[in-house]
């Protein structure tokens, strides 16, 4: 398979995952805000922090309110990761790899891209936002489903899986970090237990993990167990361990994969080591940061190994 095609497919998968998770994050965030005690001061701006977009956002807006955050994450031209820009990137990438992606996927991506651009206002408007975001999430899932049912299990497929898992691992670390940051704002009073539960519940929902969590952990929502699940669970497709395993396994089926496999497995060991800690407090945020750096390294290795084959 052409290096350039591999690269485009890898990015399509990453962006597709990003669109879905951004839409989900936005669609459940207002519920979190309604549930939290008034005294917990967790603003919409937190969503900007989760995605490390502070600089881009502040260049554009001075008011950190709901409207601006939603606009920025959905349709802002200055935000490279906005839903509209991500969809544009997917569309261009798929358009240039139409020879290896099923034709229907192109049609769906094209339709979704048109739909979002045309109905962007629905996302900003609170009363119809939920429906709008739901349909983005659904269509993303349909596209992923369509690919998984139809695509030949060749290198293109492995590239798609690599992109998806690198993006997922990154998203999971970000959501965990955001969770811990929010918990730190909770004051130790009568409402604390309840507030913590709401925050961790929201982290789980952001990753579509609440139901799997309950089944796997058979526990109420508690910080330690949530961290344990989202990092160490072997079966849940968005857990760090699962993603690292997938990256290693998919890479093994591709040529010249030794370095990528080694690095992915190192992340896995790192996760196991971190989970031995007694509690996940402020210093854990540094550990998560280190994990993100490691993931960036895996991404870099994927690039040098397969996308720059002539160098």
């Amino acid at each position: 398979m052409l290096s350039k095609v591999a690269e485009r497919i890898y990015w399509s998968a990453r962006y597709l995952e990003r669109v879905e998770s951004t839409a989900r994050l936005l669609s459940i965030y207002d519920k979190l805000m309604f549930d939290l005690p008034r005294r917990v001061n967790l603003g919409w701006y937190n969503l900007i922090v989760i995605n490390s977009l502070e600089e881009d956002f502040n260049n554009r807006y001075s008011v950190r309110d709901e409207r601006n955050v939603v606009k920025f994450l959905l349709g802002d031209d200055n935000n490279p990761c906005s839903v509209v820009n991500s969809l544009r990137a997917i569309r261009e990438n798929i358009r240039t790899t139409r020879d290896v992606i099923p034709g229907e996927a192109w049609e769906m991506v094209n339709e979704l891209s048109l739909f979002v651009q045309e109905s962007l206002a629905h996302g900003v408007n609170r009363s119809v936002r939920h429906e709008f975001l739901e349909s983005i999430v659904k269509t993303c899932q349909q596209i992923v489903g369509l690919l998984s049912v139809n695509m030949t299990r060749d290198e293109a497929w492995e590239m798609l899986q690599l992109g998806q898992n690198v993006e997922r691992a990154d998203m999971t670390t970000r959501n965990l970090d955001a969770g811990i940051a929010a918990i730190q704002q909770v004051q130790d009073d009568d409402y604390a237990v309840n507030a913590r539960q709401i925050i961790w519940g929201n982290v789980l929902r952001s990753l579509n993990a609440d139901q799997p969590y309950r089944r796997a952990m058979r526990s109420s929502i508690k910080g330690d167990t949530v961290v344990d699940f989202l990092m160490g669970n072997e079966q849940f497709p968005r857990s760090l361990t699962f993603c690292a395993n997938e990256i290693a396994e998919r890479s093994k089926r591709l040529p010249k994969s030794e370095q990528v496999v080694e690095r992915a497995l190192a992340i896995r060991s790192e996760v196991s080591r971190l989970l031995e800690a007694d509690e996940f407090g402020a210093s854990f945020r540094d550990d998560l940061n280190d994990l993100q750096v490691s993931l960036a390294e895996v991404h870099g290795l994927i690039q040098t190994t397969w996308f720059l084959s002539d160098k």
């Binding site: 052409l2 290096s3 350039k4 095609v5 358009r95 240039t96 790899t97 139409r98 020879d99 034709g103």
Partner: peptide, 16 residues
């Protein structure tokens, strides 16, 4: 892109 896809051929640019 259409023809490459229908023929099962690689679509390449000069730099490939």
């Amino acid at each position: 892109a259409f023809l490459a896809q229908r023929m099962g051929a690689e679509l390449v640019e000069g730099s490939d």
